[in-house]
Design a protein around this nucleic acid. Structure first.
Lengths: 200, 200, 200, 200
DNA sequence: CATGAATGAGCTTTCATTCAT
DNA sequence: AATGAATGAAAGCTCATTCAT
């Protein structure tokens, strides 16, 4: 897998420019609104903020759920790309893993819809989860190979940790922003090979 | 603070017995329904399952939110009592802390509303959070005094951890029940004094 | 089958009086509105005219289609009862049959929804169709026994005729009211034993 | 009136050929779709099936209703032409009338939109109705002159009969195809001079 | 006091028609 | 002249809350 696979979506040729602009505007507005208010917002609010009519919105996304899924996927995709880019540029495997989590979580600070989606389905659409898994897996293997990872830690564990910390990020977003970093540090330390007891 | 403070609510005098019974039935039904379906369920469903009419329900809880809050609070209260009871009976401070978390999380396995509440408001009603804080604080102090706790760990950290793991419990409730225990172990290991690096 | 089976619906005991009144008001309004405008009207119009809120309407009829079906069935039921009452009181079998059709069709003059329903489904809900069939069948047998009915004519034929003439009634409702009676006469004459050629 | 009046529309001079082709494609698709689904279909479906854009469709037919009217008119026109052609070729006046109805109805078997149109407006656009009237009138006069038609039967009666039987054709299209022929026979027999009673 | 019917604003979605490209 | 994206006013239906019985 390369980063190029997830570059900005190539403008499909036969597509009108303003349609593409509208689609982008909808996603942008929806991203903000969903993050602020969660997945329960009125679709009208999104239409209003994107400056398009309801029909336009539903032409691009035939269902509210589809819009939500698209937004979540795209968001997580962007974040994953960012986080992974930095991780691969980091020599030290442990710092790579650490930095990946830090960046991923930092991005989704205060995003209601993202955490809701973890709760509802175990994460956004599977395609995106797949990718997240794959990236985490690479980082895990690097750490394992370097002998810095606690034995027995699986990719599932790391993925689950990501979701759990998302919750923490959201919880503290307004009252204690940044506190989640302490939790991240704690958890990651628990993942280091210094802790060798077998996991349940 | 003693456990007695949180015993079953003394039947307020002047209150008719059936009113109290209704209130209990509502809470019981709401507990189940909110856990199963999350806070978004139709109030009617709760009325139906408790066998009371809408009017009765709204007489006891003037708002859906108030009912939700009551349920969450009472539930967490019960769990806290259970978990704390076992913790104080445990000699080893570390095992006490560990067991407390394990029991607390085990209880709320798969409870949608609980995790949602973490997301929405930073936890259930403050009274309950207060108590949770207090209990965690006691356990934390015991560990700190015994020198088994990583320096710098605050009650806030532990509380936040509890919320984050709640998310993990819910996420894995159906597909991988019990996987959260691995995460709990990892996190708690990161809290041991074996990890001495300062937290951010 | 007796006429008593189709008397006014017995007020179900546990039912509140005003609920029954509302239900009746809804049906009454819906009857008028559907007849005037066809099955495509806005449900709100019915709610407005019956003086109830949308919720009330949907409490009684969980779907627009259900309301429509109820209205059609009840209407046809009433008409059938009227028409049949008169038919059984008529000595001459042929006049009984003739009168039955005349009255049935006369009632539904200009009712949009009724004819639409014939088009859509071959008639309103089956329960009602069953009854219509049964009544027509009795009248047909009387005529056949008296030797005044063209041989080979089935109840299906008569039922289909009823639907076809409904169309004619509606078509002429505004421009040539009453013209349908000529068509009725013509068709019924074609059903008399005077026309003995076998049917295709 | 001659048949030539209703031949294929002369290509209006200043009109581009592809425009004419589009118009034809639209009508062809609309004919199928309206027949299948009735007049309530989404205009998009017609645009899709004709392979033209919405704009083109609306350039040719500024309103959905206008398109529907055009389709109905053209369809009925074709059918009328067919049915009339055969009727004039038939020596026996009664067989001519009979055959005309049979063919006309046989053509519109199961055409939702046609029957709907009878219900809605008393028939398709007046131009077409005029022609239908004229044709039926000719056949009626032939029968009357030959003394085989029941006295007092008007062209209005015959036209109304046509609409009523349309309903029957549609009603039985799927479950009992062909049953309408029995009804046709019955009605026509009622129109024969054998039945001499005056009509209401 | 209990009941559950009534309320009505609000939600998601559709579709005839218009308009920028 | 053709395209199909954009529009926005309904439409069907839901549900927290109130109120008559």
């Amino acid at each position: 897998m390369t980063l190029a696979d997830h570059a900005a979506p190539a403008p499909r040729p036969g597509r009108r420019a303003d349609a593409e602009r509208n689609r982008a505007a909808i996603i942008e507005a929806a991203t903000v609104v969903f993050a602020e208010c969660g997945g329960g917002v009125d679709v009208r609010e999104i239409a209003r903020r994107s400056g398009v009519g309801m029909g336009t919105l539903y032409r691009h996304f035939p269902t509210k759920d589809e819009l939500l899924a698209t937004v979540l996927e795209q968001q997580l995709d962007t974040w994953l790309t960012d986080a992974y880019r930095q991780a691969v540029a980091t020599e030290d495997p442990w710092r790579a893993l650490t930095g990946f989590f830090e960046q991923l979580l930092g991005n989704q600070a205060g995003n209601r819809a993202v955490v809701e989606s973890y709760t509802a389905t175990g994460g956004p659409g599977s395609a995106c989860v797949q990718r997240c898994y794959a990236l985490i897996d690479q980082l895990r293997v690097r750490c394992a190979d370097a002998g810095v990872l606690r034995p027995g830690v699986t990719t599932d564990d790391l993925f689950l940790l990501s979701g759990a910390l998302s919750q923490a990020v959201l919880t503290t977003a307004e009252s204690h922003p940044g506190q989640w970093r302490r939790l991240l540090r704690i958890s990651l330390d628990g993942l280091s090979s210094r802790n060798a007891e077998p996991l349940p």
